[in-house]
Design a protein around this nucleic acid. Sequence first.
DNA 1: CAAACTGATTGCATTTAGCAACTGGTTGTA
DNA 2: TACAACCAGTTGCTAAATGCAATCAGTTTG
Lengths: 167, 167
Amino acid sequence: MTDQRRSGCPINLTLEVVGDKWSLLVIRDMMFGNRRHFRELLTKSEEGISSNILADRLKTLREQGIISWADDPSHKQKGIYSLTAQGIELLPVLAQMSGWGFKYLPVSEELGIRAKLLSEGGPKMWAEFMDELREIHLGVKRRKKAGPSVGERLQAAYERVMARKKG
Amino acid sequence: MTDQRRSGCPINLTLEVVGDKWSLLVIRDMMFGNRRHFRELLTKSEEGISSNILADRLKTLREQGIISWADDPSHKQKGIYSLTAQGIELLPVLAQMSGWGFKYLPVSEELGIRAKLLSEGGPKMWAEFMDELREIHLGVKRRKKAGPSVGERLQAAYERVMARKKG
DNA sequence: CAAACTGATTGCATTTAGCAACTGGTTGTA
DNA sequence: TACAACCAGTTGCTAAATGCAATCAGTTTG
């Protein structure tokens, strides 16, 4: 990962940071699956990332200021990865990619339901979800809204589809 | 490019199609720079793509239904690449990436001005620009709006910055 | 007719991705 | 206190993608 940039174009620079097949999936799992430890990210992802790639991406994402790392006081070996403010603001990028994929690619039903809700919810829902992420990852307190959070609603919808498919 | 998918997640599927360092740059140049021929894409890009990579990406993007190809009647060897409806709808993805890059990465002034305007314009401006792209690439007629188009405004802003920088 | 231009392709070296096994340490349980 | 399971990675190796420079055959321009 040398520092030479191909151009000063914002799209190019963004691609140089997260334009590979894994970085955004790691961020997705931290955002939507609340995976915060190395092992969680390694074993609970749909796609099966290998440990050296995961270690490399976590390192790079830290260097880029997209995630941060802290000791887990409950376990001497565990660390907790968190999204930074900058990382949280990748949500609209993921939401748009998710919406496009849902519309044009062979998305599975259980994994598509979140995309559908997020796409229908639009920028207003994204802003609310980013607020929730700031609370979870940065400890920023926010006024509790009535009813379930966006994160909870997405998770509940996923589980509803899974339950119906199994039963 | 084998067809095996890592998962049915919409974000993952989108990444498998355009999640590399070049595909989205080719689409960017077609959208914002109106590059339609192989040579234009090859020589007029900021980043300097090599010809074998460009040929491979154009092939893949055609196979994925993101761009299409047609003979150029003015020249027996020339072909014209166009964005499909599906390709045009990648604009919001590019716009979000562009906005994020503009906010957090060392974007050059002349290449950042489009990102700034597009970000400020929001979904409404993106919809208008997609309408313009549908006219240019798909031949879909639309009612002419008053004043310069989004594409023209972006280009004019870019040229204004360049003129000022040169003196 | 020659030079420049067209959309690529080929060969080769470098870089990145990916798999499987392994390391050194910690924690929970019997 | 022995021991399995768990923790965050690292190492060695192979496969695939990337990138550069040269080349190609047909087309258009002067």
